[in-house]
Amino acid sequence: MQLKINGQEIAAYPSQFTVTTLDLDDSESSVRTADGTLNRDRIAVKRQIEMSWGVLKWSQISGILQAMDSVFFDLTYPDPMAGNFVTKTFYVGNRPAPFAVAQDSEIMWSGLKVTLTEK
C-alpha cells in the first residue's frame, strides 16, 4: 500500500484503513413526499478515510500529526471506487492520541485515530 501526505510517505502505516464513499445531498431540495418517496438532489460524492495505529514511537506519531497539521492537505491513497491510487485534498478532524508507556527516554503511544474528510 502507498500512503502519501503532500507527496511524502506517511511516517508509519496504519493498522486499520477504511475508505467510505459519502453522498452529499442538498438539504433543502432533498425531501420525502407525504407518500414516503424520496426526491433527492445529490450535489457531490466525497471520501472519508478512517485510520488507526497500534503502538507508535514518539517520532512516528509526531511525524503523522505534523503531516496533517495544515487546514487542508493532499493525500495519495488506494481508492476502492477508482480502482487505483488517487490524490485528493482532505482535512482532519479530532486526533486522539492515548499515551501507552514510557521506556527510558522513549514515550510510546498507542491507539492514534484520525478521520479525514475530502474537501
Rank of each mutant, 00 (worst) to 15 (best):
A82L: 06
E118V: 06
S110E: 10
N94D: 12
T87I: 05
T87W: 02
T21V: 14
A97I: 08
S29M: 10
S59W: 02
W53L: 04
L24T: 13
N39W: 15
T20G: 06
V114E: 00
F85V: 03
I107P: 05
G63W: 00
L112E: 02
L38N: 08
A44Y: 12
V86K: 12
W53A: 02
N84Q: 15
S29P: 10
T20A: 12
S30N: 07
G111D: 03
G36A: 14
V71N: 09
T33F: 13
T87G: 01
T87Q: 03
S27P: 09
S110G: 10
S70P: 01
E28T: 11
I43L: 12
T20N: 11
A12H: 02
Y77T: 01
N39H: 15
I64Y: 00
W109Q: 02
S62R: 06
P98L: 07
V92N: 03
M108Y: 13
L56P: 04
L112I: 05
R95Y: 03
V92S: 05
S52F: 05
F85P: 02
T21Q: 15
D104W: 11
T21K: 15
E28I: 14
G54Q: 07
A67W: 00
G7L: 00
G93C: 05
L3K: 07
D26L: 14
D74R: 06
G7C: 00
T89G: 07
T117L: 09
T21E: 10
Y77E: 00
A100P: 07
Y77K: 02
V86F: 10
Q66M: 08
V19H: 13
N84A: 14
A34L: 13
D25K: 08
S52V: 09
S29V: 13
L65V: 06
S59K: 13
I107Y: 04
F72M: 06
S110H: 07
Q103K: 11
L65N: 07
I43V: 15
I5S: 00
V71W: 02
A97G: 08
Q103D: 14
I10R: 06
